[in-house]
Structures are given as C-alpha cells and as structure tokens.
Design a protein around this nucleic acid. Structure first.
Lengths: 191, 191
DNA sequence: GTCGTTACATTGCAGGTGCAATGCTACGAC
DNA sequence: GTCGTAGCATTGCACCTGCAATGTAACGAC
C-alpha cells in the first residue's frame, strides 16, 4: 500500500473550504473550482476525495452537524455533574443558537443546507429523528415532562436562530427572549 | 403608444413560473431559460420584462411577501369587527405558518429566498422593520403588552414554520404546540 | 399611409460548470 | 529492483449560464 495520507483529514479540510465559500457567497457559489481554490488545492484533488459534487455536499453537511453537536456536548460537560435542569437546558439551547460572528457563519451554512435539502427530501428522516430525540430530552428536563412544551422550546430556539441570522434580533434580545420563555416554563421563581 | 399589455400582469406571470421552479427544484435551478420554459414563453420575453436576473429575483420576492401579507389580512378581516385578542393573534400566526401543501410550497420558496439574501444583506433593513412592526402589534394583543413575550411568540411561529418545512413537525403538532404556548401567555383559562 | 415605439423572438458569445480521462510521481510490498 | 497502486495535476469536453445584439411584427399617434 503506497503513499498514505489521512483521508478523513483531507476531506474535512475540503469541507472547511466549502463552508467558508458557502458562508461568504452562498451555496450557489460552491463549485468544484471555487472550493478547490479556497482550500488551496487543485480541482483534481477535490475530485480524488469526492467522486461527485453531491458527495462533497453531503459530507460537508455531516461535518456541520457533528461540529454543532460536539459544541453542545462539550458545553454541557463543562457544567459539571448533575446540573440543575434549567441550567442544563439553557446551556443546550444557547449553544445551538448562532450567537457571535463565528457561530453565525456556521448558522448561515446550516441554513443554506436546509434550503438545499428542503427540495431533496432524502435526508428528511434523519432530521426527523434528530428532532424527536431532542424533544424527548428536553421534555425530560421540564417540570412535568411536558412534551408539548418541549416542542415549543425547540421551535422557539429555531425561530430565534432564524432572526439572529436575518439580523432582526440582536444577540441580547434573543437571549432575553429565551430566558423569559424559560421563566414561564419553570415558574418565574428561580432565575 | 403602441401595443399595450399589462406589464404588472406579465411580470407576475413570470414570477409565478419562477416560484414553481424554485419550489420544485430549488433556487439554484432558477435560470432565465428554465423560468421561461416553465412560463411557456421565450427567454427573450423574460428579458424584456426583467433586464437582469437579479431584478427578476427581487420582484419575485416582493410577490411572495405581498401574497403572504394579503392572505393574513384577508383572514383577519374575516374575523369580523373587534375580535378577541387571542383569536386575532392565533389567526395571524396560523396564516403565517406553512400549513397544507400549497402554503408549504410558498414556504419553501420563502426559505430559499431567505438563505439567498442571508449572504446579500441588502434587504436586511426592510426585514428588520417588518419584524419590529410585528412585534409591536403582537405585544398590543398580549396581556400586559409584554413585548418580550411578543418577540417569543413570533420566534416560536418562525421555528414551527421551519420544522413544518423540514417535515419534522406535522400540521397538527405545530398547531397544538402553538396553542399550548398561547395558553401559557393568556392564562390557560379560555381556550 | 408613415413612423416611432413597444413587444417580443432568435441568435451568438464569453464564461463557468461538473465530470471523465489521462498522465505523472512517490511510496510500499515483495 | 520492480511493480502496482494511491495521490494528485492537467486537460478537455459537453453543457449550461446570463446577457447583449439584432431582428421582426404589431399597434397607435398623426
């Protein structure tokens, strides 16, 4: 077996370039050549690691998803053992929101992918499952395990994300809106 | 003055074709030729009514926006004079949600446009103003005029819309989630 | 009538696209 | 050593893109 390189590493390197292009110029600017140029490699190399453009896109989507979930679980782990439910939930949500410039860029990419896959419903089942799991987990944190309320928090968070990306809400406003909602769910007592 | 045709009508005819293409194959499939073919006209005609592709896109976005706001005000007008605040608010929100197949197609287009403009922040101020006005109006309907709660309802609705488009929430679930939230805001008493 | 303007249709072009094909090079098994 | 294969680079191609240019036909003012 000749010349060995880390496949996964190369692929994520390319995916990173893709995300940079998408964040700056939108998904429609993502082409083999653009991505290759952004990554500082030849188009041939990109083709070597992804036989088709769609394969590249799919992989990049996976990277976005993994990064986000990694950020969340790291932030949650930092809370230490047995955190209060409200604190845990808030940490979860805050880390899913596109707050700050870097995170906002990620969010833009995610949004672009969402619009992209809205037409190609291939990945819908996976999305559905993810969401369902989320709802279940959130419900377990809420007083009474109210799963309808859980679906609400999640949707609220998603909407706040949209408005953050669209520039309609500021970071502060999104956070205070979120906290007001948590007050309502947990009873305004502890804040 | 020679040959008279209704400019606005032709333009919306083309915009409709564009929306059909976008709803089915995504925004990146929108090209002069595709739209022209979908509309059953020549590309020359499309060019006649829109000097540039971007002009066409912008116009189509306006159509989407106008349609949606027209649907809402019509539904509200149908409530008759002096409706109760909660009923009014619910009508407003429900008509903004992509419920049902037709409305969902519109929603997909709107989402695509959102991702499209997320990179070209030209139209951000208009969006901002729209949202702000909405928040103000909703706050005026809520007990206590709570504008933080108003921002929450709006974001919740947006998030529900996203999950409807993504296929994560069913129509029923979105509606019951919305109602549960309204219960919380108005006090669970009247439903 | 004629004439100017509008409403289109057709054609052409420079540039970009995904992708296949081919070629070269460096490494590792044997 | 040599040979096969992985890792890349280059090139070429058919297709599509937005857009400009040019043509033609219909209609109204005069």
């Amino acid at each position: 077996m000749p010349r060995k390189v880390d496949h996964q590493e190369r692929r994520t390197l390319i995916a990173d370039a893709l995300m940079r292009v998408a964040a700056e110029h939108g998904l429609e600017a993502v082409s083999l050549r653009h991505v290759a140029a952004e990554a500082g490699v030849s188009t041939g190399m990109v083709q070597h690691y992804f036989r088709t453009k769609d394969e590249m896109m799919t992989f990049a989507m996976g990277v976005v998803r993994d990064r986000s979930s990694a950020r969340v679980s790291q932030a949650i782990a930092a809370l230490g053992p047995d955190p209060e439910p409200r604190r845990l939930l808030r940490t979860l949500l805050v880390n899913l929101l596109p707050l700050g410039d870097e995170s906002r860029a990620d969010g833009r990419v995610a949004l672009a992918f969402l619009a992209y896959t809205a037409v190609r419903p291939a990945s819908t089942p996976a999305l559905r499952e993810d969401t369902e799991q989320m709802v279940g987990f959130i419900a377990s944190l809420l007083p009474g395990g109210d799963s309808s309320a859980a679906a609400g928090v999640l949707a609220l968070m998603e909407g706040l994300g949209m408005y953050l990306l669209g520039g309609q809400y500021s970071d502060d406003r999104a956070l205070s809106t979120l906290d007001a909602h948590l007050d309502r769910l947990f009873g305004a007592a502890a804040r």
